[in-house]
């Protein structure tokens, strides 16, 4: 990783924030423009392209039939995977996923799973033998910060337009989709805040991410319950900041939920 500019930038960004300004002139609690385009792939059973400012993430959902976990014989299975594609940034390299990629996959997985938005019990075909497996694959196409929110938004958007393929004699015919939708009953989203110096901003851009001290991602469901949380970065938050951000996240999540 090269961050030639990071040190100089840090002072610049911290000072800017102290004077209540951000690099792109946004308010501290303002998202960049967000565009959600569902159904961008014809091959996937569900898909979505999400843009938050310059950040672009494409999420595809594929369905397959497989065995359930032995301790949950009557539940479908879901898996989330993110790829930080080298085409998205000079920072991303080929090869096995690094800890940042893995963290992204797992934090997005967490909000989808814990919100119970997919009715996994409806994905059981034969108890203990066959269930539907939901693969959520996120591809980062352009990286300008805040992959968590973009990927989580892409995932729920893609899940909500996922339709089952046709099944004949126990075999899936992927080329033919049915009208039956994947049972998705909630719209969980994640909101991410960055603490830079003493200031906290929503939806950090890459320049802000590179210099942040601490980061927190908070996932909520439609009811406003908290379903997932992850702190990152080498710095710390105060207890009051965390409680405050949890409340702020509830508010801001509504803006995202309107888009799916």
């Amino acid at each position: 990783m090269f961050d030639i500019v990071a040190d100089i930038k840090k002072d610049f960004i911290v000072n800017l924030l102290r004077s209540k300004k951000r690099v792109d002139n946004r308010a501290f609690d303002e998202y960049r423009p967000i565009v959600v385009e569902p159904g961008v792939s014809e091959k996937a059973e569900g898909s979505s392209l999400v843009k938050i400012g310059n950040t672009q993430v494409m999420v595809g959902v594929k369905l397959a039939i497989g065995e359930p976990f032995s301790d949950m014989p009557d539940l479908g299975v879901m898996m989330t995977n993110a790829e930080l594609n080298p085409l998205a940034s000079p920072r991303f390299e080929k090869g096995p996923p690094d800890e940042d990629t893995i963290e992204l996959s797992r934090v997005v997985d967490r909000v989808i799973r814990e919100s119970k938005c997919i009715e996994l019990e409806k994905l059981c075909i034969t108890e203990g033998e066959e269930v539907w497996i939901v693969f959520i694959d996120a591809h980062i196409l352009d990286y300008d910060g805040n992959l968590f929110d973009a990927t989580a938004l892409g995932a729920i958007s893609a899940l909500r337009n996922t339709r089952f393929p046709k099944v004949e004699d126990g075999r899936i015919i992927y080329s033919e989709k049915t009208d039956k939708k994947l049972p998705v009953v909630d719209r969980p989203v994640e909101t991410t805040f960055a603490k830079i110096g003493k200031d906290i901003v929503l939806d950090p851009v890459l320049d802000e991410e590179l210099v942040l001290d601490a980061r927190i991602t908070i996932g909520t469901n439609e009811k406003g319950d908290i379903c997932a949380m992850q702190k990152g970065g080498d710095g710390t938050f105060t207890q009051e900041e965390i409680i405050d951000l949890v409340n702020k996240s509830r508010e801001k999540s509504e803006e995202l939920r309107k888009l799916v």
Binding site: R113, D225, I226, A228, M229, K231, T236
Partner: peptide, 15 residues
Amino acid sequence: KDEVTLIQMDGNFEK
């Protein structure tokens, strides 16, 4: 010091 260095959560907490 009132500094939280790790926080993670999964599941469901109501307000």
